[in-house]
Amino acid sequence: MLGLSMTITLMLPSFDFRSAESTWVGLDKSLSNGLRIGWSYEDPFVVGASKPLTVILNANPKTGEPYDPPVRAYVYQPGTPFASGVEHPDNLGPTVKKLSLERGKIDQLDRSQGAVFTIEFADVNGQEWAYVVNETATKGWTPQEVLSAAGDANTRYVGRGKTVYITEGCWWCHTLLPEHTQDWQVFGTPPYLGDFNGEMPTAFGSDRKAPDILHVASRNSSREWMMMHFFNPRLVQPNSIMPRFDYLWGKVDANGNPIDFAKWRADYTAYRKGERAYPPEVPEYARNTEIRALIDWVLTSLK
């Protein structure tokens, strides 16, 4: 009887999951998150080590030919494990796998050299399909030249940011799953079947105590607002019950000056009591902080 129930609930659905074709959203999430988030040999402290970087390219890094609109590229530096769909093309779905292998050359890879990927579209039987392109094999882009062509301003620490989302437990209150009811009118379209291929963990969230954020960057794309909101949500939403995430700033701000959290909190308390006209300024975060990665992920991935 247990065998029957496992056949129905595990084996039969696996046929459905296996035939799911990845969408652009699925490819983008998978390529920007890397192989997996959670404990692994490459990331034993679950801090987002060995993750790919997502860069926004305004021009071809080899030829200098300008891109309009800009192109999103996923940079895997040497040693970084490749995304699930690249390591195991079956996870892309049958058609996307075929396109990615034939046109995208995703089988010509060497982890010790790293690689750069982009997502392109092709027309097959009158339908548009997104597929993965290994730009290292097709155009000869190396991770290093793509990173220096983009510069830090156009680099997004998406994989590391998603890791922060997981380890800080944001998903215990925020969901990534607008429901098939009235929900979508406020929170946007529910995800499609192929939006999850290669994602680990999916972390839909089940206990919503806060707005769904699957499309939050479409509603609010202000980095400054995000910064204030993470530092102390009550700065921008006085009735919020979200915890303060000021500890994600680390010890120093963007200019290398130590952040005096005690003074900030004292000033903020004075402001709440009406002893100050304005709340204290939120410090600029330093380049390599968890908060930068988290905001990068929110603004890049949750559109």
């Binding site: 609930t9 999951f17 959670g38 699930s84 996870n91 999850f196 994602e199 999916t202």
Partner: peptide
Amino acid sequence: VGQSAELFNLTGLTEGYLTFW
């Protein structure tokens, strides 16, 4: 079965479904 998703790096809806399975 439930933890096989982590051990064998099963991803996507397979992982989401196994979590709630």
